[in-house]
Nucleic acid binder design. Sequence first.
DNA 1: GTTATTGCAAACCATTTGCAAGTGT
DNA 2: ACACTTGCAAATGGTTTGCAATAAC
Lengths: 168, 168
Amino acid sequence: MSQEDFSLGEVNVSLTPIERFDEFLQTRGMRRTPQRRTIVEEVFKRHEHFEADDLIKQLQDLPGERRVSRPTVYRTLGELVEAGLLREVAYNNRRSVYEHDYGYPQHDHMHCTECNGLFEFHSDEIVKIRDAVAREHHFRATGHRLTINGICKDCAKARRHHSPLDLV
Amino acid sequence: MSQEDFSLGEVNVSLTPIERFDEFLQTRGMRRTPQRRTIVEEVFKRHEHFEADDLIKQLQDLPGERRVSRPTVYRTLGELVEAGLLREVAYNNRRSVYEHDYGYPQHDHMHCTECNGLFEFHSDEIVKIRDAVAREHHFRATGHRLTINGICKDCAKARRHHSPLDLV
DNA sequence: GTTATTGCAAACCATTTGCAAGTGT
DNA sequence: ACACTTGCAAATGGTTTGCAATAAC
């Protein structure tokens, strides 16, 4: 976490995700419960994309008194999105994939159709074009989602070891 | 449909979607059935984004002998995607949205979070940047999906008629 | 005559919800 | 004390599947 204490719009960036969530709960008259606390902690332990089910499994490895039920996980994930701590990346249709969206720089994704991997990248250009396009169409842009589809470096390499006639 | 007879990669662009689908079925040893025919016809009657359910409703207005069951609609939509005639736009998670992807120029979307509307736009720049980014990361790009989120012109206008304190 | 396809009813499965018991404030 | 939360079990709802009857080829 940065030591600086500056604010970006309404959001005080010097807070940890846990503090930020507490702040959010307070503003909304919602309560700080051990379950909510456990979930934010686990969610921000590492920075990978995850699905609700990944998180549920992760929580199952926790000592018994910290167990959280499935509905509560779903409810809390929704709250974390509302709080601006998580973002939903809908690249997989059918189930939701989440990623950190707090104190983490704007970025986009490359999605490998072979191994289903998701890779992040950043491009200032994209944002510029986005805003230009939006302006041109009188659209008030608040964000965007770009996913480049294709084959990642590793899968491309693996493929070269097969003959081009090797069908599945 | 264009009168010209030129090919783009493997795809003969002079075919109508219906012909193209027949060709696809033939190559795969699949059969031309009245149900499949009805579905392609209805799907390509107009160029809007649609969900499986929209199509099912549209089919219900057809004379009785052309009725198609729900499972067949889902099965055929999948085939149309495989055939490269349709493309799945996963902007809504939970249900699939389809759009024409045959003889239709590359484009991206603006998604209005207010009215849920989807608007198309085209930008050559985006494709250039996409390829540059992919090259830089040794990623073999085959396509991309960009959705700009925000408020469309009409919803923005409607909003100005409310006081900023008008919550929900 | 084979083999693919259809329609029906039932299954799937991620997510959501009603509700009674529990718990922050 | 008073809401807000939780966990349970059951519901939801888009999509998929098993299977017997049917229809392309």
